[in-house]
Simulated scan of single mutants.
Amino acid sequence: MPASSLSCIAQFIDTITDRLGRAIIWLTLVMVLLTFLIVLLRYGFNIGFIAMQESVLYLHGIVIMLGAAFALKEDAHVRVDIFYQKFSQKQQALVNALGIIFLLLPVCLFFFYISLDYVLASWRVLEKSSEAGGLPFVYLNKTLLLLLPLTLFLQGISELCKSVLSYQVATGENG
């Protein structure tokens, strides 16, 4: 595939991931403020709202599950790079590509596959909170189990494209 095509694919996916990540950053602030409000109401005024507490759990799920692709894009994920940091650009590109092909993408596909029936069952009954006064959107929260592997898979494709481009640059290929 020509380098310009790989670059366009990576840039398109990165734009989507970046916009999603920037929105999630703001959701993190909302989650912190909401948590402060819950604590203030509970311990300052002895008032509690189950729906408000559950909304923090939902926000937490969104931040973690949808933020994973953004962390991958920003190279903010955990990497044990005892050897990697000493590798050449070509070796790093090869390790990244192989890791994406043989680890990240298959795990994303597997996770999506094993979660699909669980999420669809929740959607079929429009699952609600079992708590009185809880949120009636459990099925939406469970959908994050499908969005995590989907967004990670897409970002993995972007990272694979960038690894191939990096490998081409390191080897002097002009694809």
Rank of each mutant, 00 (worst) to 15 (best):
105 L>A: 05
52 M>W: 10
85 Q>P: 00
150 L>C: 09
35 T>S: 14
81 D>L: 01
30 V>R: 05
89 Q>T: 10
42 R>E: 06
42 R>H: 03
45 F>S: 11
49 F>H: 11
144 L>R: 04
103 L>Y: 14
72 L>Q: 12
138 V>M: 11
98 L>Y: 11
54 E>N: 09
85 Q>S: 13
95 V>Y: 00
59 L>T: 08
130 S>P: 12
137 F>C: 05
121 A>E: 10
111 F>P: 04
79 R>A: 14
44 G>M: 06
124 R>Y: 03
112 F>W: 12
150 L>G: 05
31 M>N: 14
133 G>V: 03
43 Y>I: 04
139 Y>W: 11
57 L>Y: 10
120 L>Q: 06
38 I>P: 03
124 R>T: 09
62 I>H: 03
75 D>F: 08
55 S>D: 06
136 P>K: 06
149 P>I: 03
31 M>A: 14
150 L>F: 11
110 F>S: 08
35 T>V: 05
15 T>E: 02
75 D>H: 14
136 P>C: 04
47 I>Q: 11
48 G>S: 12
22 R>Q: 15
146 L>I: 03
142 K>R: 13
20 L>D: 06
111 F>D: 06
66 L>T: 09
128 K>W: 08
79 R>T: 07
41 L>T: 11
133 G>T: 06
24 I>S: 04
39 V>M: 08
121 A>I: 05
102 F>R: 03
38 I>E: 08
149 P>D: 04
86 K>F: 12
36 F>M: 13
127 E>Y: 02
123 W>P: 02
138 V>L: 15
29 L>R: 09
98 L>R: 11
26 W>F: 13
106 P>V: 07
115 S>C: 03
88 S>C: 02
21 G>A: 10
13 I>T: 02
34 L>Q: 13
48 G>C: 00
25 I>W: 15
54 E>L: 04
85 Q>K: 12
80 V>C: 02
37 L>S: 10
92 Q>V: 05
86 K>C: 07
42 R>T: 07
143 T>L: 13
57 L>V: 04
97 A>S: 12
75 D>S: 15
129 S>Y: 01
